[in-house]
Write a protein that binds this DNA or RNA. Sequence first.
DNA 1: TCCTGTATAAGAATTATTCTTAAAAAAGAA
DNA 2: TTCTTTTTTAAGAATAATTCTTATACAGGA
Lengths: 146, 146
Amino acid sequence: MHKQHKKERFEEFRKICREHGLNVTPQRIAVYEALSGSKNHPSAEEIFRRLVSNFPELSIDTVYRTLNTFAHIGLIRIVGGYGEVRRYDPDTQPHHHFRCLKCSRIVDFESPEFSRLKVPDVLQRKCRITGVKVVFEGLCEECLSR
Amino acid sequence: MHKQHKKERFEEFRKICREHGLNVTPQRIAVYEALSGSKNHPSAEEIFRRLVSNFPELSIDTVYRTLNTFAHIGLIRIVGGYGEVRRYDPDTQPHHHFRCLKCSRIVDFESPEFSRLKVPDVLQRKCRITGVKVVFEGLCEECLSR
DNA sequence: TCCTGTATAAGAATTATTCTTAAAAAAGAA
DNA sequence: TTCTTTTTTAAGAATAATTCTTATACAGGA
């Protein structure tokens, strides 16, 4: 991804849009370029601010809509806050989660093995690590049977 | 946690509150009981709805405040949507994250090993798993040096 | 070029969460 | 107990993120 040249990335982008029946608009190009050129997992607001000076008629709603569309077709991913409501877990013991991509259900499971994953060197050197969690994602039983 | 009896759990709860200089109020007891008796990682709103019929003067603000307090002292955990703004990642290749608990910075790292974690049987049987991510949490370089 | 469906801007609306403030409750001291 | 101080709460206003509505503009195909 970061290795590609701008040109190639653009062609790839255009192709993926076409495959999903999406028009290739200046707004979509701008949002995709802004995101794929950034390393810090920006929010919609940050992307909007980065673009609006060169693209004054761009609206924040379009940025949200565009990013959602991209995430929907798998062109980008959502990380961090999922824009969902905050949820709470009474279990403070180390444990891990499965999260249903469709209904957002969260299922706990225990795995001493996962709780003992080795911290990668690159993190170990710079950060103080206080915990690790493994999140499997997919479709839950209920959503599968529909 | 779920193994304990109500009584023991309550004594433990009271003890932890005291240790952190928190008064043990009916609201706090109610919110903690509601959360620790639930298996589905409820939102503040859900907890509020569960309680308000027996506790009509309870306010939603108190539920939020109480849950935040509990999370702060480590009595419960926040899962799922972190209540933070949604953020986007242009990298759709399997990779993993470190997340700073203080400034919410997200740092990518790659680990083919983590991307190949074996799906636990309990999930394998019921769900369709489409991905896995490992999230390390702690304090980042910048936040450590303050 | 024109046509048709798709995408957009603008701003209103919605929703989750936090803040403000005055009152109530709890803890501590006398 | 009663008085004082500190903490907590309820109520509702405020804020911030995200989505919706609608009329207009644009993209891609014929």
